[in-house]
């Protein structure tokens, strides 16, 4: 009983009240939700934040009609290849990026509105055996793809009309790249995590692989979410979907690790552990915005952490409508989007 599990916590820390429900989106045509995100959209001279929802076969754009009400603007139907995820393009406007594929990403497409033809359309940006993809500031997209013969890491500069303006190949590490994160405040720096449990650093301008640093084997399959450089150290927010519970720190969902890029040495800065009562492998998927992390737990609840203090700040239990399946931060710190598989999404102010 999830409510019973959460009772000790609600009196002693994270509170559901920290998350205030702002509005609900119910997509009755969506039978199996795969992702939710936000996008800046400019229409008739005004720029506003819109919600993007994805099912396996279609992606829908929602506009705010009233403070607590959303209306569907358009739905892109994408054919036979299922949608796997929406790839947020942080500061892009009127551009939605999606990854499609079966077991892994096979193609990346841009969804957009063309003022030339006065119609919504989609275009192909990349195909391949794509292992990881990330959207960066200034309409840049980085992806890693791997076949038996070739390992490629590439940055694509996207155009507003759905094409690519430029491409830059980055030097691949030996191991498969599992995730990327932009280094905030350093436009040309990018970090990635690999299947060999290392953090790698690239120079995006030259394509150089600058450094490979060991994370440590106690937390396999770590994924990087965010990075920033301060006082000569590189701070990386990692999540640990497969971490096991230990006596010293419980079950870490997120960890902030400081790396010295000069020496490759690292030190743990802060753990963010699962709330009490949640044991074992409980983390399904998560998202990081600024210094807050959110994750869906196997109980069907969503937990929110203050990553710098290592404190679980809020827990959203599964409601009568069912378990939560997705947790995403809205762009610009506009709130938390929680989604269920049945096409129900809640926007919370945090």
């Amino acid at each position: 009983d999830v409510a019973e599990l959460l009772t000790p916590m609600l009196t002693d820390g994270p509170r559901e009240e920290s998350l205030q429900l702002v509005s609900e989106i119910k997509d009755s045509s969506c039978s199996c939700t795969v992702d939710v995100s936000t996008v800046w959209w400019e229409a008739a001279g005004s720029r506003e934040l819109r919600v993007v929802t994805a099912s396996e076969s279609a992606v829908s754009l929602w506009e705010p009609l009233a403070p607590d009400c959303w209306g569907k603007v358009y739905t892109w139907h994408l054919g036979e290849i299922p949608v796997i995820q929406i790839v947020p393009l942080l500061d892009a406007c009127n551009l939605v990026c999606v990854a499609l594929g079966e077991l892994e990403i096979g193609e990346i497409r841009l969804l957009l509105y063309s003022s030339e033809t006065d119609s919504f359309k989609h275009s192909l940006v990349k195909t391949g055996n794509i292992k990881a993809v990330v959207g960066l500031k200034d309409q840049r997209l980085v992806s890693s793809s791997r076949t038996m013969q070739e390992h490629q890491v590439e940055m694509v500069l996207l155009s507003e009309t759905g094409g690519s303006k430029d491409r830059q190949t980055l030097m691949p590490p030996e191991e498969t790249v599992t995730a990327f994160a932009e280094v905030e405040g350093m436009r040309e720096a990018l970090v990635g995590t690999t299947a060999g449990n290392t953090v790698v650093v690239w120079n995006l301008k030259t394509g150089q692989l600058l450094r490979k640093m060991n994370i440590g084997y106690s937390y396999p399959a770590s994924i990087c979410h965010r990075a920033y450089s301060d006082s000569g150290l590189l701070f990386v927010v990692l999540s640990h979907p497969h971490a096991k519970e230990s006596e010293s720190c419980g079950s870490p969902a997120f960890r902030v690790v400081a790396f010295n890029p000069r020496t490759g040495r690292s030190a743990g800065v802060m753990f963010s552990c699962l709330p009490p009562g949640h044991v074992g492998r409980q983390y399904l998927e998560g998202d990081v915005w600024d210094t807050t992390g959110a994750a869906v737990l196997t109980s069907g609840a969503v937990a929110v952490w203050d990553l710098l203090r290592g404190r679980c700040a809020a827990v959203l239990p599964p409601g009568p409508g069912g378990h939560w399946a997705l947790a995403r931060w809205a762009a610009g710190g506009a709130g938390l989007l929680a989604g269920r598989r049945d096409g129900t999404f809640h926007l919370y102010r945090y």
């Binding site: 720096a189 650093v201 120079n203 450089s229 000069r262």
Partner: peptide
């Protein structure tokens, strides 16, 4: 963090590593 555990720190690590790494 304990600086001695992490070794000598450079504020210009990105530029320095870019100058040293193979192109």
């Amino acid at each position: 963090c304990n600086e001695s555990d992490l070794g000598p720190i450079s504020l210009n690590w990105f530029e320095e590593l870019s100058a040293e790494a193979p192109l």
